[in-house]
Simulated scan of single mutants.
Amino acid sequence: MTPAEAEPLVSVESLIAVLGAAGLGTILGHLLAAAKDRREVRSRALAAIQHVEELRWAPFDARELSAAMRDAGAALMLARVPRAVTRRYLLCAHAASIVSKDDYDQFPTPEGGGLPGNLDELVALAGRAALAVVWNPWIGRLRAYFLLARATRLEAAVPAGSSVANALTAAKRRAIT
C-alpha cells in the first residue's frame, strides 16, 4: 500500500468530536457569533454616517438632522469608535450644516448651500477617521490619530471671524460631550 492510499490517521468526524469534548466547539461558536455581531454593528455605524451626510446639506429639517446625529453618535460608540473621533466627526458635520444653511439662506437656489473648501476637507478628514476605526478597529485608531492631527492643523489655519470659524465655535457650544 502506498502512502497516498493509506487512510488518514485522524478522521474529520473524530476531530470534531474531540474538539467538542474539549469545549472548543463552544468557543468557536461564540467567536463566529461575535464576528456576525461586529459586522452588524459596523453596518449600522456606516449607515448612520451616510444618513448624516445626506441630511447635513441645506435645505434640511433641523430636528431630523439632530436625531440623525444622535443616532450616528450612538452607532459609532457601539462600534467602539473612540469618543474623540466620534465627537470630531459630529462637530465638523454640525458646523458644515450651519454653513450650508447660511449659504442657502443667502442664495436659495439649487447651487446654494455649498461649503468652503477648508470646511469640506475638515468634514472629510473627520469622516475618514471615523470610518477607519469602524473598518479596522486597531490599525484604524492609528490612522484616525494621523487624520485628526491633520484636521487639527487645518482647523488652526482657519481665519478667525470667518464663517467657518464661527460655525465651528457655534457647533462646539451646542456639542454634547
Rank of each mutant, 00 (worst) to 15 (best):
M1I: 08
T2D: 15
E5P: 00
A6M: 14
E7H: 11
L9Y: 09
V10F: 13
V10K: 00
S11I: 01
S11N: 04
S11Q: 07
V12D: 08
V12T: 12
S14W: 00
A17R: 07
L19M: 06
L19C: 00
A21C: 01
A21Q: 07
G23I: 05
L24G: 13
I27H: 05
I27Q: 12
L28P: 02
L28H: 02
L28T: 04
G29M: 07
L31S: 06
L31T: 04
L31D: 04
L31P: 00
A33H: 06
A33M: 12
A35D: 10
A35K: 11
D37Y: 07
D37L: 14
R39L: 12
R39D: 13
E40R: 15
E40G: 08
V41W: 02
R42N: 12
S43Q: 14
A45Q: 06
A45F: 04
L46I: 11
A47N: 12
I49F: 05
Q50V: 07
Q50H: 10
E53R: 15
E54G: 06
E54M: 12
E54P: 01
E54K: 14
L55N: 07
P59F: 09
D61G: 08
D61T: 09
A62R: 15
A62F: 09
E64L: 13
M69Q: 15
A75E: 08
A75G: 09
M77K: 14
L78A: 14
A79W: 07
A79R: 06
V81R: 01
R83W: 12
R83C: 01
R83L: 10
A84Q: 00
A84F: 00
Y89H: 09
L90S: 05
H94Y: 07
H94W: 11
H94E: 13
A95D: 08
A95V: 06
A96V: 04
A96K: 03
V99Q: 04
V99H: 03
D102Y: 02
D102L: 12
D103W: 06
Y104F: 15
Q106T: 09
F107C: 09
P108Q: 08
P110L: 08
G112L: 09
G112V: 08
G112D: 10
P116H: 04
P116F: 02
G117I: 07
D120K: 14
E121R: 15
E121Q: 14
L122H: 07
L122D: 03
V123A: 05
V123D: 04
L125Y: 03
L125S: 01
R128I: 00
A129Y: 01
A129Q: 03
A129I: 03
L131D: 03
V134W: 04
W135L: 11
W138Q: 08
W138V: 11
W138F: 11
R141M: 03
R141H: 01
R143I: 00
F146K: 02
F146W: 14
L148D: 00
L148C: 01
R150N: 12
R150G: 09
T152L: 02
T152M: 03
L154N: 06
E155I: 01
A156G: 09
A156E: 15
P159I: 06
P159Q: 10
A160C: 01
A165Q: 10
L168T: 02
A170G: 05
A171K: 08
K172F: 03
R173I: 11
R173H: 10
R173C: 03
A175I: 05
I176V: 11
T177N: 13
T177Q: 06
